[in-house]
Simulated assay, not measured.
Amino acid sequence: MMITRRRLTRGMIAAAPAIAGMSRARATPSFPTRQVRIIAPFAPGAATDTCARIIAQRLGERWGQPVVVENRIGASGTIGASAVARAEPDGHTLLLGTVGTNATNASLIPNMPYDTLNDFAPVTLFAVVSMLVVVHPSQPIHSIADLVALARKAPGGLNCGTAGVGSSPHLAALLFESLGKVKFEHVAYAGVAPMIPDLLQNRVNVSLGDASSFLPHVRSGALRAIGVTTATRFAGLPDVPTVAEAGVASYDAAAWYGVLAPAKTPPQIVTQLNHEIAAIARMPAVKQQLEPLAATTVGNTPDAFAAFIHAEYKRWGQLIRDAGVQVTQKS
């Protein structure tokens, strides 16, 4: 078919608006257009801060744009999380969220300053941290079965130390009591560090906490690890069974860290962030960086992370209400 010059000219004129539109689309600045902030709602040096800085460094390298970590601490992480919930939903302010800020605090703290399930756009679950059940080696407790038997024999006779009321280890202990049908005397500390000396001196009979805190003492023989709280075994102690496989059916508890944006962040930006951060989570070098935290990287989809948050919110909320646990919000 022959195309005349007149017909070709008419076609070019008709196509001009579409071509102009494509040019404008290409000219639109891509994300990010300025410095990106990742809010870490806990102190420098904490696991949350470590994860945030790893992500910030790698994103900065990939984008050629500055990515900074800002520590907004206080009120069990709610100050930092609230700042992100109120931020402009353009992807330039992100939260390194935790099981506390984005699942359990809603049931623990009265008058929360944000809506846990509706004020954020989940991006990806970055990492999950195993916890260990440990005892002093002088205790006649060599397994989860031994612990359950002894605790049932004398309800409240064993004390259990944790990093504080409402902390992940405390809730993990409550879950153990509920599923194992046992009762401990809870001893709440202001973090793991002040608890370790009492645990090493056998003033604390049993404890649950992040594997990274206990690992040096387990490897030295000063503590005995009898169970891993997650659904799968911890690679650093492959011979230690999970609590579930050791007899407490359905038991699964972990600390976790994920990236969230403010609600109403454009889906295309959430998708871009997800692709970038999930790729970072898969990097062998990043996995190695997180080994000291006993962390396993994940990097799932926004929908999968949202479903995970809803499940965590529901199950921990029910446990907290059943146990009547509440913490006083402090700044």
Rank of each mutant, 00 (worst) to 15 (best):
L237T: 08
P262L: 08
V84A: 05
E88H: 14
G11N: 14
R282L: 13
D49L: 10
V133I: 06
L174T: 01
A307C: 04
L200H: 04
S82C: 08
K287M: 12
E88T: 15
A87H: 05
M131Q: 13
A154T: 14
A18G: 13
A127S: 13
T242K: 07
I73R: 12
R6V: 10
A190M: 13
M2N: 14
V248I: 13
R10Q: 15
P137T: 01
A40K: 01
T48R: 03
L59Q: 10
L150Y: 13
V123L: 08
R72L: 13
T271L: 03
G77F: 09
T9Y: 11
I79N: 12
I109Y: 08
N105C: 07
M283F: 13
V286F: 12
T265A: 13
E70R: 13
A304P: 12
K181W: 03
A255S: 11
S30P: 06
R37I: 08
H186E: 14
H142V: 05
A294C: 12
N159R: 09
T78Y: 08
G247L: 06
G157I: 03
T230S: 12
G100Y: 05
R224Q: 06
A235H: 11
A188F: 12
A85D: 00
R282T: 13
V69A: 04
N300P: 03
Y114K: 00
D210W: 07
T9F: 11
G74L: 10
T232C: 03
L208R: 02
N111F: 02
G45F: 10
C160F: 15
P155F: 02
A295M: 04
N111C: 00
R86F: 05
M283I: 06
G11A: 14
P113E: 03
V240L: 13
Q268N: 14
A246E: 07
F31I: 06
A285H: 11
G209S: 10
Q289W: 15
A190L: 10
M131I: 01
I39V: 15
H92R: 14
G209C: 09
I39M: 06
S130T: 08
I19H: 11
S143K: 07
L132F: 10
I280C: 04
A231D: 10
A81V: 01
T4P: 03
V259N: 07
A163Y: 01
A279W: 01
S213V: 06
T328P: 02
R203M: 15
G45N: 05
L108Q: 11
V129E: 14
